[in-house]
Write a protein that binds this DNA or RNA. Structure first.
Length: 502
DNA sequence: AAAAAAG
């Protein structure tokens, strides 16, 4: 019996613009999705778009300005753990003199998440600009977007049209975001209006910013008071994601977006020492990014309370259900101390919208708006896909041919990055070993490796040290790695939904 | 069916 493997290749061999999603297989979108109407919205007359205030803030306790001002006595970085939300915010920047000179990229005790801002080399600059999203904006113009629900806030065309606040606007510029992506154009105004949202969008569509901007903006405006517990922290926003690496990535982005806003994002996931994460939490947390298992652990230890949650975002929800997280997610959202729908704002993101997600949406969301963004990958300008049928015994030599061709394709003297997906952890190790023996610098990422090894592998791949990464579907969705030129599906996926990633 | 996620 012959097997097949498919590869997808960024059409544009100019590597600077060839960055693609880690899972950029570029398969056509689901036509069914765009026409889906949520059950509760069927058979309703279309509603005209009403006049709309573009930045009404979500429910807030009061309107005071001067975020974090009530903790004047706190000492950021002091030896005593700071409880609740004290320990950062205005205390870090205003006074105290702790690192306030901002020497090595540290300002007010906050590490600059943007790294070195000076981009001198012109090629590097072009690279960096692509890196900000990995997306060719021009390919976006005609992407169909569908919304349904009552009183849907109209989309915006520029970030300037949205009043996100000065600090956030500055960070958007630092991220070199020029123009909102389709999901951002629609989702941000809807979220800023305080509405719950169910959004179908794929990886690389700019989802993270779409839910982070309104959350950060809302927290800045909200001035939420919080209790102080002994070792218990009270985040205002919770972002759940299926894999540890995706949580890390969301956290990194959230840190950039919230830089110097006084809003603090913390990440918690399994496989890493919990003590370090606990210390980080004790220093204060507004936005908690977490994988479900570790969060349940933290909740059971009463180190985190969800009582003050105002914003809940679930990323890659269908994937979380696929991975069997529904019990944990329901425990977190329904059986702990989180405010019910209506008293919090909930944003649910999923690549697909099957029955289970529909059920989750009707349980977690209140009077929500449904948003479907067509797949970017359907643009053949962006990605070329090739399927080759080869005998199982020829697969490796076939891959080797492809990798050899790739070696001459690099830029800046570095080989461009190739991501190889395989079905099993064992298969990943075997392929890596074989590649290594064949003279290729390859590494692997899969669930049998320690978290340290996984993170090291990802760093090594991103840096180009090992330009080949063999991965199981721990990396199959959500991760967005700049400069990936080739994505190879070495084993034909059994699950076609995984293959088209929605 | 395999993979992922809490030790």
């Amino acid at each position: 019996m012959s097997t097949s493997w498919a590869d997808s290749v960024a059409a544009d061999n100019n590597a600077a613009s060839g960055s693609s999603n880690i899972n950029g297989t570029g398969v056509a979108s689901h036509p069914a999705r765009s026409t889906y109407v949520p059950p509760h919205l069927r058979n309703r007359p279309p509603t005209a778009e009403p006049p709309f205030s573009s930045h009404s803030a979500p429910p807030s306790d009061n309107d005071r300005i001067g975020y974090g001002g009530s903790t004047s006595g706190s000492r950021p970085g002091g030896s005593r753990p700071d409880y609740g939300r004290q320990g950062y915010g205005s205390g870090g920047r205003g006074g105290g003199g702790w690192n306030s000179r901002g020497g090595d990229g540290i300002v007010g005790g906050e590490v600059n998440p943007f790294g070195n801002d000076d981009v001198n080399d012109e090629a590097e600059r072009a690279f960096a600009e692509q890196e900000s999203t990995g997306i060719n904006f021009d390919a976006y113009e005609d992407i169909p977007v569908e919304t349904s629900g009552e009183n849907v806030a109209p989309p915006v065309n520029t970030f300037a049209e949205i009043d996100l606040g000065e600090a956030l606007n500055l960070n958007i510029r630092r991220c070199k975001y020029v123009k909102p992506t389709p999901v951002q154009r629609h989702a941000i105004p809807i979220s800023l209006a305080g509405r719950d949202l169910m959004a179908c969008a794929q990886t690389g569509s700019g989802k993270t910013a779409a839910f982070c901007f309104p959350i950060i903006s809302g927290i800045i405006r909200g001035q939420f008071e919080r209790p102080r517990g002994y070792r218990t922290v009270y985040p205002l926003a919770l972002i759940l994601s299926p894999t540890r690496e995706l949580s890390m990535q969301i956290h990194e982005e959230a840190r950039k977006f919230s830089y110097q806003t006084g809003v603090k994002a913390v990440v918690a996931y399994g496989g890493a020492p919990i003590n370090q994460q606990l210390r980080e939490l004790e220093r204060g947390v507004d936005i908690l990014v977490a994988t479900p298992g570790r969060l349940v652990d933290l909740l059971e230890r009463a180190r985190v309370s969800l009582e003050m949650i105002r914003y809940l975002a679930l990323d890659e929800a269908d994937r979380m259900l696929d991975m069997g997280f529904e019990p944990q997610i329901r425990k977190i959202v329904e059986q702990m101390d989180m405010p019910p729908p209506g008293l919090r704002q909930t944003l649910l993101f999923s690549a697909t919208f099957p029955k289970e997600i529909q059920r989750l949406a009707s349980d977690f969301l209140s009077n929500y708006i449904f948003l479907a963004v067509q797949s970017v990958g359907s643009s053949t300008d962006l990605i070329v896909q090739r399927v080759e049928f080869v005998h199982a015994s020829d697969k490796r030599s076939h891959l080797m041919d492809l990798l050899h061709a790739q070696m001459t394709n690099g830029i800046h003297g570095k080989q461009s990055l190739t991501l190889v997906f395989v079905e099993t952890k064992k298969g990943a190790d075997a392929l890596e070993h074989w590649l290594y023996a064949s003279g290729f610098h390859a590494t692997t990422i899969h669930g049998d490796r320690t978290q340290q090894e996984r993170e090291q592998a990802l760093r090594s791949f991103k840096s180009g040290n090992t330009p080949i990464l063999v991965a199981t579907d721990v990396a199959a969705r959500g991760l967005d790695i700049p400069h990936v030129a080739h994505v190879v599906n070495f084993d034909l996926p059994n699950d076609i939904d995984d293959y088209v990633h929605g």
